[in-house]
Every structure is written in structure tokens, then in C-alpha cells.
Amino acid sequence: MKKFIKEACVGNLEEAIRAEAQGADRIELCTDLHLDGLTPSEELIKTAKEQLNIPIRVMIRPRSGDFLYTPEELKEIKASIEFCKSTGVEAVVFGILNSKNELDIEKIEQLTQFSAPLKVVVHKAIDFTNDPLENLEKLLKIKGISSVLTSGGAETAEEGKELLKKMLELCGNGVEIVPAGKISCDNLEELHEYLGARAYHGKRIVGDLH
């Protein structure tokens, strides 16, 4: 029995291939990791799908900066999700806030329904809300969300571990809370001992990919 899933965050095809070779159980595919990850190109998604044997989760984020999107940007997000559906990746990863710095539950629900049958991951936009735990409670009412990527409202999983623990308790065996935020092969075991999560996310979760 594998005790937890190691999800490697990768920014190009070479890193994706290396992550799989180094023992990643799945990847989150992005581009522009220096901007905290944006939507990868269709070509990259397609090639990664052809060359990898592990599940691929695709970041859907049309630009850097905040998570308040215009109607045009939401159209772009939908087009990216549509492409991901056609390639048969495992999941799409997105997050939307409203002007009050809360998750935009209505828009997230619409996009979740639109993304079916793909799995849906709500990303670290939740960490920018005023109360991540309260926002998680609202999120759990949406049918179809499979995972929430979070560092417990802090800069790193280590700093946010107490809130992460509460989030994990709130979800139980339902929605998968995926701790993230400077998790590497060096601190993973120690964090797992405290959190006991089913999956963890990081750029160096299976070591250096460069």
C-alpha cells in the first residue's frame, strides 16, 4: 500500500518526464512557474499526455496576478478546459475569487459542471481568502470537486500546517486536501507524520527536476 501520492508541479515537458522517472505519482502541468504557474500550451498538454504514463492535472490560469477574472478571461478558461477534455487528462486546476476576497462559489460551480467528466482541483486561490476554512466549507457544497490545493492560508505548508490539519479533518475521506507550499523530498516525511494527508504537491517533491 502506497501511503500517499506525490504530485510534482512541473513547468515543461522535460521536468514532467524527469518527475515520472524520479517517482512522481502524478503531475500538475503548468508553464511560467516563476509566476506561480499559468495554463500550459495545447501542444505541451498534448505531448505530455502522449509521453507520460502517470495522471496529468492541468493548471488553468490565463494570466498572473489576482484571481478575479473578466468575462473574456472566463471564456479563455472555458476554452482551455474544453481542450483538456478532448485530450483526456485527469483533472483541471483553477480558482476564482470575487471582489470581497472570497471564493466565487457560483463561478466555480459553473466551471466544475462544465469540466465534467474531468476531475476538478481548486487551487491556492483559497489561501488568499479572508478565512480559508470557511471558504472550504462553502466549496464542499459543490458537487464534482475532487481536490483542493492549499498551504493552509500561509506562505508554506509548514507555516500553515495547523490550518491544513483542520481542513483535512473537515473533509475526512471526501474531497482530497492536497497540502502544498515548499514541500520537498526533504520535509515530506515529517509533514506527513503531522498531517496524514492522502497527497502532497511540490516542485521538488521527488527531488530536483533540472
Rank of each mutant, 00 (worst) to 15 (best):
L164S: 03
H201R: 00
L164I: 06
R198Q: 11
I145H: 03
S146C: 04
V148T: 10
L168H: 02
C185G: 01
G144N: 05
K203W: 00
G196Y: 07
L164A: 03
P179T: 10
S146M: 01
G160S: 05
K138L: 11
H192Y: 11
M167P: 02
K141T: 13
G152H: 05
H201P: 06
E162C: 02
A180Q: 02
G202N: 00
K165A: 12
T156P: 14
Y200L: 05
A199M: 07
G174Y: 10
L163N: 07
E155P: 10
L164T: 06
L139W: 01
T156C: 15
E169Q: 15
G152C: 08
A154K: 12
S147F: 00
A154M: 05
G196C: 07
G144H: 11
S146G: 03
K166P: 05
C171M: 01
I183N: 00
K141F: 06
I142W: 06
M167K: 01
G174F: 01
K138V: 08
H192E: 13
C171E: 04
S184H: 09
A154T: 09
V178H: 04
E193I: 08
Y194C: 07
K141G: 02
E169G: 15
D186F: 14
K141Y: 00
E162F: 14
E169R: 15
C171K: 07
I142M: 09
L164P: 02
G160N: 01
D186G: 06
L136P: 06
G172N: 09
I142A: 15
E159T: 09
H192G: 03
P179K: 08
D186W: 14
N173V: 06
V148L: 12
D186H: 12
